Amino acid sequence: MTNRDRLLGLTVVVLWGLNFLAIHVGLEHFPPFFFAGLRFAVIAIPVLIFVPRPKVPWKWLLLYGVGFGILQFAFLFTAMRTGMPTGLSSLVLQSSAPFTVLLGAIFLRERLRGLQLAGIAVAMLGMGVIGWDRSQHAALLPLLLTLAGGLGWAFGNIGSRLAAAESEGVNPLHLTLWMAVVPPIPMFALSALTEGPTTGWNDLIGSFSASGWPAFAALAYIVLLGTIAGSGLWTFLMSRYPASTVAPLSLTVPVVGIAASWAFLRETPSPTALIGAVIVIAGAFTATSARRRIVPAPLAVTPIARISTPTDHLSATAP
C-alpha cells in the first residue's frame, strides 16, 4: 500500500471513530431503524437525480447495499439504542475484519492459511472475554447485535470488491453513493412495522426546535463525513487492494472511538473489556495481515480470479 493510501486509510479511521459519537447523539433523538433510513435517504434522493449509476452488476450493488447499509446499521443502531456503550460498539463492530477474511475465502477464493485461522480463533476468544464481561455487568443482547452488524459490514465489503472486480474503471465514489439508494425503503418499512408508522416522522418534526439542532448536526456528520467521505475512501481502497490488506486498517477505529467516548461521554471500559479488546485486535490483525494465495478456477479463469491475482494487485498499486 502506498503512503498516500495509508494516509487515506488513517483519515477513514478518524472519521469513523468520531462517527460513533454522532450516532450516539442521533439515537438520542430518533428511533434506530428510522435513523438508519434517514441517513441514507438524505444521500439517495440527490444521487438518483444527479449521479449516474455505475456500470456494475445489480446483484453486487445490492449485496453491498444490503450488507453495508441495511444489516450493519440496523443491528448497530439497535444495539446502541438498547445499551451498547458507544466506545465498545466501535470495537466490537471491527469483528467485520475476520468476518471479511472468511467471506473472502468463500466468495473470492482467497485461501486461508493456518496463521489466519489461528488469528480468527484468537479474535473469537477476545469477543468471548468481552461477552463474558458484558454478561456480568449488563445484557448480552446488545453485544450480539453489534457482532451481527460486523457480519453485515463484511458482506458489504465483499459486495463492493466483487462490483469493482467485474467492472473496469468503476468510480468508487459513485459506487458508494449508489449503495445508499438500497437501504432507505427497507429501513423505513422496518421502522413503520416495529417502531410505529409515525414515530420517526414525529421525532423528525420535533427536531426543528432550539433543542433539536444536535440531531441535525449528527445527521450532517454521518452523511457527509462518515458515509460519503469515509465510505467513499474505504470503497476506493477495497477496489485497489486485497481484503486482507485493507481490513486491518479498521482495527484502529476503536482507538479513536473509545478515546472519544471517554473524553466526551465519560465512558470508562472495565479492565476485563480492555483485555478482551487487546485480544480481539491482536487476533484480527493476525487474521487479516497474512498474505494469501488465490486459487484460480480449475476449468477457466473468471474475471474475478483474473483481477484478484497477486500480479495484478502489484501492478495496480505500482507508483
Rank of each mutant, 00 (worst) to 15 (best):
W213E: 02
V182P: 07
V181Q: 12
G150R: 02
S209Q: 04
V170F: 08
N202H: 15
A180R: 00
E168D: 07
L173M: 15
I258E: 06
G212N: 08
L251W: 11
A215R: 07
F208D: 08
F155N: 00
P242F: 14
L151H: 06
L249H: 11
S261R: 10
G152E: 08
L175Q: 04
L175P: 01
A220H: 05
T235D: 13
E195R: 05
F264P: 00
S191H: 13
R240C: 02
S261Q: 05
G226S: 04
P172L: 07
A165K: 04
I228R: 03
F208W: 05
L224K: 01
G232E: 01
L173K: 03
V256H: 15
L224W: 08
W201D: 00
F155D: 02
F236H: 15
T252V: 10
P254A: 12
Y241N: 01
Y221L: 04
L204I: 12
A164F: 12
L204M: 09
R240W: 07
A218W: 07
W262F: 14
L204E: 03
A243R: 00
I158H: 00
M238D: 00
I222S: 10
G150Y: 01
S207D: 11
P248Y: 09
E166M: 07
V181R: 01
S261W: 11
G169A: 05
G196H: 08
L190E: 09
I205W: 15
T198P: 00
N202E: 14
F188D: 10
S160T: 15
G232I: 03
S167V: 09
S239Q: 07
L162V: 13
T252H: 06
T194F: 14
M187P: 14
R161P: 07
P184D: 12
L177V: 08
L237H: 00
T245R: 15
P186V: 10
G159M: 02
V255F: 11
W234N: 15
G196V: 12
P186A: 09
I205P: 01
S239C: 08
T245D: 12
P184N: 14
T227C: 07
P197Y: 03
P172A: 14
Y241G: 12
F264L: 14
P183H: 09
G226Y: 14
G230W: 09
G150K: 11
L233C: 01
S191N: 06
T227F: 13
H174D: 13
Y241M: 02
A165P: 00
T235P: 01
A164S: 15
A260R: 09
L224H: 01
P242K: 09
G156V: 03
P214L: 08
S160A: 12
A263Y: 11
A247T: 06
G196R: 12
V181K: 02
P184L: 13
W213V: 06
A164Q: 12
P242H: 06
L225N: 04
L175I: 11
